[in-house]
Design a protein around this nucleic acid. Structure first.
Lengths: 111, 111
DNA sequence: CGCATATTCAACCAAATGGTTGACCAAAAC
DNA sequence: GTTTTGGTCAACCATTTGGTTGAATATGCG
């Protein structure tokens, strides 16, 4: 039984894609600008964006020759709901979130 | 073991592994009993359990010839925290996040 | 128009993933 | 002891993944 959690979690499993999501958290971006800080080819980033789109994590809208990418947090929320099934979480740990921001957000260092 | 988001999300991306986690939510289980409801081989389930262990989502303890599997929600918690960053706020705002925590998620003791 | 820019497509590649079998080892049961 | 049970290991296989290039397709600009 393959549901959309498969694609959402698989999309989140790649550090490049998580870095892209972090970038889109700040603002909508064109594909070329998303690709800019990464060392890989534009085609590779384009593929990552397609994966994120199929997972519903972002949406892409073409205006002119520029395709704009926009964060769509609803899919993340769905995954989060799945996790609530494991309801034994302690409340969200702020320290962990801050550590995430320090480690994950500087996308220029991303492998 | 590792709380790396890569391995945690990759582990969660497989429906068999999510089903295993759901089973372990009810109680600790031996490897053979985990494998029982699935149609695949015991070796395949054993591999899935190793992946879950490496992701830190479960732990395995051998008592006698039986290896017991136990849910370890810490890694899930880390992933959940990561997702909260996207689900709740448009621009990441730590102050707002902290305020949100105080209002919406009052700290309680370990359940 | 002619050319640059933005993005994808197609073919290819190496490595990882998810599964299978059969041999193997340790612990328990008879 | 011998056999059964619990579980992993090793080798293999098919498919997917993440990346590369180079060509192709639009769109905008001078």
């Amino acid at each position: 039984m393959s549901n959309d959690l498969d694609t959402v979690f698989a999309a989140l499993a790649d550090p490049t894609r998580r870095a892209i999501l972090a970038m889109l958290l700040e603002d909508d971006m064109a594909v070329t600008d998303v690709a800019d800080p990464f060392e890989m080819s534009l085609a590779a980033i384009s593929k990552h964006l397609i994966i994120l789109t199929k997972a519903g994590l972002i949406s892409q809208e073409k205006r002119g020759r520029v395709k704009w990418c926009k964060l769509e947090p609803d899919a993340l929320r769905a995954a989060s709901v799945w996790m609530q099934g494991f309801g034994q979480f302690e409340p969200v740990n702020l320290d962990a979130f801050e550590r995430f921001l320090e480690v994950e957000l500087p996308v220029t260092d991303d492998p």
